[in-house]
Amino acid sequence: MTTDIKDRSGQGKGLFRFSAPPVFYPLAGRLAPWFAGIAGVLTVIGLYIGFFVAPTDFQQGEVYRVIFIHVPAAWMSMFIYLIMAFWAAVGLVMNTRLSFMMTQALAPTGAIFCFLALWTGALWGKPTWGTYWVWDARLTSQLLLLFLYLGFIALTSAIEDSRRADRAGAIIALVGAINVPIIYFSVQWWNTLHQGASVSLTQAPSMATTMLWGMLVMALAAWAYTIAVALWRVRSIILERERHTDWVKAELDVQESRA
């Protein structure tokens, strides 16, 4: 049984009606610009706090300021993969096409954040550790996450049958999710060069309040950016997947008339 809805008639109950691409498409178009605007404002505020307001670290000096980009990027790279795994599970259980589309819409952004986390970490590591890269548990498992993202994107793009691609990608997303807790707990399970978490749910933050606020604002900016980009990207995926349906043809006619 499928919960997909084939038209704009609003069939279905509650939030389930948004599982239909024709219903979700216009909603995504209305929400994306708002989240993009929020992301822009929060990014400016977060960078201002991080680079102009936050004090200089007494141990690392000015180089520590990369944390305002590195940490939110690392957080998002892990969380986006878990969200992909969630949508993959929903797609397999509920047989909703939109769930699989969301996994594909999120993957490129997750890969970008993962690469950004590795790149900024290398820039931070050189003055701190004396090297750009070491094969410790945290860095290696984070690199594996990047390969999982790229593998997901490559596999789903290579399979022409969209339903086969959806299910193959869902398997990668679900199996690869095992790597996320390994990344997070690696500094506790193994002896690594990477420092422990500066922010914890069970302990007080090990940084100045201003530093913490700057990092959290940047994390919220990354959240808003991810939502905006994913909504825009899933709209493109919907148009591609549903291009033979009447509602997409009508939508494209409307867009052409406005151009």
Rank of each mutant, 00 (worst) to 15 (best):
A105W: 00
V93G: 02
A88I: 08
A89R: 04
A111P: 01
T96S: 14
A105V: 07
G121P: 01
T103P: 03
A111F: 03
S99A: 15
F100T: 00
T103E: 12
G91M: 03
M101S: 10
N95G: 07
A117T: 07
A111M: 09
V93K: 10
A107P: 09
F113E: 03
T103N: 06
M102P: 03
A107F: 12
L92D: 07
T120D: 08
F100Y: 13
A89L: 15
L92I: 13
Q104D: 13
V90H: 07
M102E: 10
W87I: 05
I112W: 14
A107C: 10
S99C: 14
M101P: 07
R97I: 11
Q104K: 14
A122G: 05
L116M: 15
R97F: 02
S99F: 09
A117W: 01
C114P: 01
F113V: 05
F86L: 15
L116I: 15
L116R: 03
W87M: 13
M101K: 12
A117F: 05
T120M: 11
I112H: 07
L116T: 15
A122W: 01
T120S: 14
N95Q: 15
M94R: 14
M101E: 13
C114L: 03
L106W: 02
L98M: 09
M101F: 09
I112T: 12
W119D: 11
T120H: 06
M102I: 14
T96K: 12
W119N: 06
N95M: 11
F86H: 07
P108K: 04
T120L: 10
A105F: 02
T96H: 06
F86W: 14
F115H: 00
A122I: 00
Q104H: 08
W119T: 14
F100G: 09
F100E: 02
L106N: 00
I112L: 15
R97C: 09
F115G: 11
L118T: 02
F113Y: 14
A122N: 00
G91L: 04
P108W: 04
A111H: 02
A111W: 02
S99D: 10
M94V: 12
G110W: 07
A107M: 09
N95A: 13
T96R: 13
A117P: 01
F115N: 04
T103Y: 06
M94A: 13
S99E: 12
T96C: 08
L98Q: 03
A89P: 06
A122M: 11
A88G: 14
A111Q: 04
